[in-house]
Design a protein around this nucleic acid. Structure first.
Lengths: 360, 360
DNA sequence: GAAAATCGTGCAAACGATTGCGCAAAACCG
DNA sequence: CGGTTTTGCGCAATCGTTTGCACGATTTTC
């Protein structure tokens, strides 16, 4: 029974030092890339070998205590169960691992109080930096609680300066979607916008207005409904809202995939088929978007890459000691055309027919 | 320019001690629940107040160094982008937060080498315990790398003793699904089983065999296809495999939702409609399962709760110093009937008609 | 060939908390 | 009231690293 060694803890610097016959400080220097050039190469080699052989692992607590660096990044997510976020987290994980950092992630449910708690425990935990996917456009709390350590937002952007950010090219994404619809003959295009408190919601909506005008398909007044959250249920509600206006339209540009899913469901309840009667576009190309029926025409974004880049940015900010100003990165997007969009119906459905003829 | 204080670090025990006029050890004791009863109540009160007022937060690194406890749990997930896992992670997060622990999570992609790396960095990070959702039935590596710290598996179980586990009642779930189908008149039921290297895959398949026999609907030889992974594509492949047997069946019990989604897609390619021609059941009730078309009849499991329970279990094992043996928890499941199952067709589709009549 | 610069390593002090031990003062006992 | 126990708190060591400084030995420089 190897129960003899009750706390067989890992070897420490001291153990390695004893084995090699040098002082612990020498071992420490030999193992660190920045300092081992001041030692005799032969010694360094020897130390490294015995360290490796004895399975030495630096004690993270001791190192953190001494260096005031935990090599830990806090990741704040609105809702990890939302399919948009896991790929980002994966990317962050990847980007951090490359630099020997780890993440502690927490969800906020979009609830400011929870976000505050989360940020506080992260500060208490001594994270070296923060990656925030839950930022509001004006997020006073974030500015307050995040002061002093590098912060980057992903996917969303806070208006306040001082944060780095990595974003998708929302404007181009919406441009692609609208252009696509127009090329299919759609002229009456409604939109379901996301929450205007979020940069995504706001920017996509602004982009929609801009490009609709540019392409000469803007309606007056604009045919838009505003979702209070990026959920399917809100997509349904907004669709109802659009339908009860009685105004004609043949396509809906949704601010994200989940809204689009809700929209399609609501349309179906009203016996409007997608894509035959109504084209719908999403945004994100979330997992399963290709497996729905109809499969979703949407804007593909590089969530994984966004995570990686965000991780690299915080790490970089940390290691350069904040001597740098915030960076902004915008990732390209791409339209993926699938089953939810189709050539605009010549003969509109009954309810649209009368009205659209007025406008034609 | 408030650049004067270059490293305005948080107050330490020493700061609080100086302010109150006592020794740091006294402050330490006053702040810990186990030791403050040895101090004068009035003093404790005073210390706590000034600690609070000055915004004191224990330095986690220092504490970890001294106590050899990081209050950090490693969470190992096969793939965080798989919709089954985020709710579990949320649950873990919740369960850990209640006890003032945090999680560091990493994905393995079901890749043993990656799992090894992940487990190693977690050990190196000094996690106090492990929650593993990626366990294989026989996972030698896990047994090796996890030795010495409390481990619990979630959702999946490793055969090796020594681990706690929290599982869903797979057997009952499959029983519910099969019973449901039988009550709808199905007599020829095929199954798409999951990977037999995973406890889920294995147990659900065993359960299917058992209950099919119990209900008198087992086919000989059994009509089963084995997925190599819990992916949609495998669901498609397995469905093809079932169809080419040429044997009649009117329902497929799938080992999870993603396989079911793949199955439905493959059926559609063969002009078999679900549920009119073929009923399909899933397992998990993953997000969006209710939004697919057809919406999925499936077995709902309590993923969130599983996470919470797993967290509570590891924490408990840690705080009791491993003086306890592993615990096993099985959570109840529930059938949720939706659109993908329907009364068995009287007149089977052409290809089933001839054959099923033979068996009828 | 002596002074100066460089090199290679050891010494010891942190970092901030926890905790066994000791020692006064207070409380208790007969 | 003297002696014993209890109470309340301080002392100092310790956890494992990192890093400024010191210092002898080499090498360089003029």
């Amino acid at each position: 029974m190897p129960k003899k060694r009750p706390q067989r803890s890992r070897p420490t610097l001291k153990d390695v030092a004893r084995k090699v016959g040098v002082h612990v400080s020498t071992v420490s220097r030999a193992l660190a890339a920045q300092t081992n050039n001041r030692l005799a190469p032969r010694l360094v080699e020897k130390i490294r070998r015995t360290a490796l052989r004895s399975g030495y692992r630096p004690n993270p607590a001791a190192r953190a205590l001494r260096t005031r660096r935990s090599r830990t990044i806090g990741v704040v997510i609105p809702d990890i169960a939302d399919p948009a976020f896991p790929p980002i987290i994966r990317g962050i994980e990847e980007g951090l691992a490359r630099n020997d950092y780890v993440a502690i992630v927490a969800s906020t449910d979009g609830n400011p109080r929870r976000q505050q708690r989360v940020l506080e425990t992260m500060r208490a935990r001594g994270v070296d930096g923060l990656i925030v996917a839950s930022a509001l456009r004006s997020d006073a709390m974030l500015s307050k609680l995040a002061s002093g350590i590098p912060v980057t937002t992903v996917i969303r952007k806070a208006d306040a300066a001082g944060f780095s950010s990595v974003l998708h090219d929302e404007d181009d994404g919406i441009r692609l979607a609208v252009t696509h619809l127009v090329s299919l003959g759609h002229r009456f295009i409604a939109t379901i916008a996301g929450p205007q408190t979020l940069s995504t919601g706001h920017n996509r909506h602004a982009a929609f207005n801009r490009h609709a005008k540019l392409l000469g398909v803007s309606l007056t007044p604009p045919l838009a409904a505003f979702a209070r959250a990026f959920y399917e249920a809100e997509g349904e509600r907004c669709t109802e809202e659009l339908l009860v206006t009685g105004r004609p339209f043949t396509a809906i540009v949704c601010a994200n995939d989940r809204l689009a899913i809700g929209a399609i469901a609501a349309l179906r309840r009203h016996s409007l088929r997608c894509p035959e009667d109504m084209s719908v576009t999403g945004f994100n190309d979330m997992p399963l978007a290709d497996r729905l029926s109809p499969s979703l025409t949407t804007v593909r974004v590089e969530h994984f890459r966004a995570g990686v880049e965000a991780a690299e940015i915080v790490v970089d900010m940390i290691e350069r000691e904040g001597s740098e100003e915030p960076r902004q990165l915008v990732l390209p997007v791409e339209l993926v055309v699938r089953g939810s969009t189709r050539r605009a119906p010549r003969r509109n459905t009954d309810r649209n027919a009368e009205l659209s003829s007025k406008f034609a």
